[in-house]
Design a protein around this nucleic acid. Sequence first.
DNA 1: TCCTGTGGTGAGTAAGTGCTTACTATACAT
DNA 2: ATGTATAGTAAGCACTTACTCACCACAGGA
Lengths: 204, 204
Amino acid sequence: MVKMKITAEERNAQIVRVAMKLFSQKGFKGTTTREIAQKAGISEATIFKHFAKKDALYSAIIDKQCNDRKGESLLMKKLEGKEGKEVFKEIATFLIQTHQEDPTFLKLLMFSALEGHKLSDIFIRTRGMETLDYLAKHISKLISQGSFKKVNAPIAARAFLGMIIHYSMLQEIYGLKRFFKVPVKKVVDIFVDIFFEGMEARHA
Amino acid sequence: MVKMKITAEERNAQIVRVAMKLFSQKGFKGTTTREIAQKAGISEATIFKHFAKKDALYSAIIDKQCNDRKGESLLMKKLEGKEGKEVFKEIATFLIQTHQEDPTFLKLLMFSALEGHKLSDIFIRTRGMETLDYLAKHISKLISQGSFKKVNAPIAARAFLGMIIHYSMLQEIYGLKRFFKVPVKKVVDIFVDIFFEGMEARHA
DNA sequence: TCCTGTGGTGAGTAAGTGCTTACTATACAT
DNA sequence: ATGTATAGTAAGCACTTACTCACCACAGGA
């Protein structure tokens, strides 16, 4: 009996961490409170001391994900001073690399949408759309500057992000990375090249 | 007591139909055999007369999906005689429209990948990759004809398909169709335009 | 007429599931 | 040292899950 007593806050955070990992691997329904307890090295009852229902755990995760914008600010820092193709390359590389290193977020978002939880909506709208919104604005700017041709910016943003996210999904979730091994740089270069040239205003 | 007796084959198909719908809505784990039985208007025991385990039901669905190529041949028929941008427009329209009318397949594929079932691999490789393979070959042809510039064809195919599938996913699964209502034609035109112009060989 | 094969079920069962309760162990201010 | 709030748990409750089995209805050949 050398079970450590830690503060409620710490235990809280720990449970959320463990649960997040498991939910992203097996979904909400596929994860049992028993397994969360076991992986966290505590008893099941302790979980329910900290979270009234299994559902509350899920809410806490989404809440955390919605308020945690480390990734976003990291990307913004990388974008500073960049322009032209470099902006798009940076975004694409960042996303693909992030998903590659840790697909937790990607899977969590997919499970959340598929399982259709109450709070999944807000999760999707805040975290799923942030890059999309940024991109749409950036594209709008390039259009008004005359370097991009006049197309619906939100749709164009979805085109670009679609290439990237779908690529990551096939690689990480559908398991294609076992067969399709290409350096990130190469993929990014091709994606950005296609998109950029497809968007560039031609001076006929 | 007017329960109809139908042939085993028919009952079999009916159960698979009901199960497929439910699996696509709530996933394998999220669907109970009770609910399948109820929605099929039979007893739970009957399901197990026809399928040894719940798992066998899942396998039957994937098997059916892998052998059912109605969609593919329908698309191929639409592509006959088309060339240039029209080929891409036809593919994009077909996919987006199909997903819009009935997202069952799309959801089934996503759940299958996320839940990581044994047979999901073959499902993904046969049904998830078919259009991708076709596209890659078509792009290869256009490159060797000199109308597309020289880029890695499989990656380019993933770029194009990524735009489309990701668009469908956001609309149908992430629920964006509630906020983002744009005619299919408009979206397709933009996607194809970006991709096509991005791929075209420039004669400087 | 009886028999037999086929399609179908009511009533279970064992193994989980989320969640609760009655209780113990420990840190720490007094 | 002692009281108290806090962190934690063993055991188990009520319910659901996939799955089973003994049995029934009935069409059709003998």
